[in-house]
């Protein structure tokens, strides 16, 4: 009898120990960016993306799984090779902009986006961008682009979108700049060549920061207040001036990047229109 009791107690103890070990949650990290970067797989993904300059067959779309959680939602489809972290960051950045609210709206903002606020921005994006692909950073160091010749409704993001560290406003500016290129008007708001010479307010040559090459004569400017540079500038400037639920940092960043974009509006009438709209 005594032996049976002892045996039973030992069995009970062993069972309890087994349960504790078997149910302990493994610390399996998700496939996030840092992991991907640490083993180089993110880079490998990028390198295998292939060229995008020639019309290439569009890979099969992989809808964002989280979309199913939100009935009535509008989500872009992602190519299969777009890393989950890239999808997630784009989602978080758009979620951020989707929550913004403002107490006022400038006239040009009203013309381009509608009333200042998240719903307007989300509509602007989702009306234009239906699909997101992965851009080969090694081919050209762009964070994002729209290539209307392939598909005006498709935005290409490179891994740089998450690998480089930028303020959230800067990522948003890039996304909305590229979204504007999706519009058919004015040849997808094609840029014009910067003037030659092209100098800043201090009389110094405007240079490409990536290469140090002067921007004079290069297609990196706009002649309209409504193009990609102008529209993203106006969006950011409205955020800086009118956002009621932004942190001070977001408003400061919005002003910084907006002011930086103004140099790319080279037509004097366009600059005046913007100045009258958001700088007076």
């Amino acid at each position: 009898m005594k032996g049976k009791v002892v045996t039973g107690l030992i069995a009970l103890a062993l069972a309890a120990l087994f349960t504790a070990v078997a149910h302990k949650r493994p610390y399996a990290p998700p496939a996030d960016l840092r992991d991907a970067m640490s083993d180089g797989s993110a880079l490998a993904d990028l390198r295998s993306a292939g060229p995008v300059s020639a019309p290439a067959p569009v890979p099969a779309a992989a809808p964002v799984p989280v979309d199913n959680q939100f009935p009535g939602a509008v989500a872009p489809a992602f190519d299969k090779d777009v890393p989950a972290d890239l999808q997630r960051q784009l989602g978080l950045d758009l979620a951020f902009v989707g929550t913004l609210s403002g107490k006022n709206t400038s006239p040009l903002h009203n013309q381009i986006f509608g009333q200042m606020g998240g719903p307007s921005y989300l509509r602007f994006f989702s009306d234009r961008i239906k699909m997101v692909g992965l851009y080969d950073w090694d081919k050209k160091p762009v964070v994002a682009c729209v290539i209307p010749a392939i598909s005006p409704a498709k935005m290409w993001l490179s891994g740089s979108y998450i690998k480089t560290s930028q303020p959230q406003i800067a990522r948003i500016m890039i996304v909305f700049h590229e979204s504007r290129h999706s519009d058919p008007e004015n040849e997808n708001w094609r840029h014009v060549n910067c003037p030659d010479p092209f100098r800043d307010a201090n009389g110094k040559d405007m240079l490409s920061i990536l290469t140090g090459v002067p921007l004079a004569g290069k297609p990196g400017c706009d002649a309209s207040p409504l193009g990609s540079y102008g529209s993203s500038l106006i969006m950011l400037k409205n955020i800086q001036r009118y956002c009621t639920n932004c942190t001070e940092k977001v408003r400061m960043d919005a002003g910084l990047y907006a002011d930086d974009q103004l140099a790319r509006i080279t037509d004097s009438n366009a600059r005046n229109a913007i100045r009258n709209d958001v700088y007076k």
Binding site: I209, L210, L256
Partner: peptide, 30 residues
Amino acid sequence: SLQDCSMQAKTEPDAHVSAGVEITLSYPAV
């Protein structure tokens, strides 16, 4: 460069891609 602060990016000139990058590269000082 945003990828490696110690070396300038070796790329073909592209006026379109550098928008806003100057601010980001100088962001702490700014």
